[in-house]
């Protein structure tokens, strides 16, 4: 699994950081998504997928 994050459309709602904190964080400055790992291990794939689905702005996608 490979995750892509587009900070230009991110609105900083924080759903990803709430759902999969090992994979996503938020910038201290403007709250936009910070991808901690592009290719999360299998144990984090479910949570990562959930985070992508929950993202309100469409900033996250899977490759």
């Amino acid at each position: 699994m490979k995750i892509k994050a587009d900070t230009s459309v991110c609105i900083g709602a924080g759903m990803c950081a709430l759902t999969a904190p090992e994979v996503f964080d938020q910038s201290e400055e403007d709250g936009t998504v910070v991808l901690l790992q592009e290719s999360p291990p299998e144990t984090l794939e479910d949570a990562s997928r959930r985070a992508v689905t929950l993202c309100p702005s469409g900033a996250l996608s899977l490759e």
Binding site: I11, G12, G14, S27
Partner: peptide
Amino acid sequence: YRRLLTGQFTVR
């Protein structure tokens, strides 16, 4: 406007 505020309401 939103961009100026989002950093204040992060999960962390």
